[in-house]
Design a protein around this nucleic acid. Sequence first.
DNA 1: AAGGAACCCATGATTTCCCATAAAGTGGTG
DNA 2: CACCACTTTATGGGAAATCATGGGTTCCTT
Lengths: 148, 148
Amino acid sequence: MKRLFGAHENKLDAKGRVSVPAAFRNVWKATPEMTLVLRPSLLDGCVEAWPLPDYAKFQAKVDALAETDPEHYALASVVYSQAAEVELDAQGRIMIPAHLAARAQLVDAVYFLGRGDHFHIWAPEAGRAFLAASCAAAPKIAFGAPAP
Amino acid sequence: MKRLFGAHENKLDAKGRVSVPAAFRNVWKATPEMTLVLRPSLLDGCVEAWPLPDYAKFQAKVDALAETDPEHYALASVVYSQAAEVELDAQGRIMIPAHLAARAQLVDAVYFLGRGDHFHIWAPEAGRAFLAASCAAAPKIAFGAPAP
DNA sequence: AAGGAACCCATGATTTCCCATAAAGTGGTG
DNA sequence: CACCACTTTATGGGAAATCATGGGTTCCTT
């Protein structure tokens, strides 16, 4: 499967719609009716968007725990109750549900970050800050020492 | 099979009816006469709702035990005696039996939580509290450590 | 007869779908 | 390399369908 690259900023319109960057749509254009699953990031103040087939790995985590296990309960809440399935309209837009937009403080524009098999949806300023911080930390992580 | 996602709040009307969220109904719209099984949650103060075909796995558990086994008695009580089959009316509403509504303290509004193959029915405040608590616990479960 | 439950219809609000347009990119051609 | 025609992309807005909800009527049960 092709992978999701790059950073893109698009406008959120009055109805809460936003165009998914064409660079992302083209990755799964072989599946015309691709649905995305949106959910809050567990680590950051952003929304994660997963093509439904790739979301299966989270579902598998939930299914691996016994029905009566309290941990199963907690995971299912995040994987299902907090998530939303969304479809692209004919123009390639999605609607971001209010509770997710509020969590990521999305107001009038959003910032998409490709991350291989999924992508992030950030408020523009927060997304750029996250990207800058990650890039600053990366050399040390990759090479064990800061870049010169 | 498609899965049940998201959280939805609907009103309980004077006759005790409540609309099942369209997002859920559409998941099993291929089966026009879908029956739901309602039963008390074993862990929480909510009502669980299962599409009848998925409820079969609980029935199988009961049937696997010998008639004379005390566990058979206990399970059969939960799986059958406490549960209720309900059908959607032409507008997509269900009636929640009094003993289940009382148990979950459902009064004038209910909160639906999608959980993959079934959903929960909560009193709104209790449901939101449950969801918040689950999501707070989830990062630790998923990553073995709390989120920063 | 009374009570509740199933059924039917009505309606405002929301959401979905469809069309329009402007901007930006693409490629071809002289 | 400048210009033009064409395609794709991003965005806006209005029409149409769906949804959630309320209320009335009939029918069965007790």
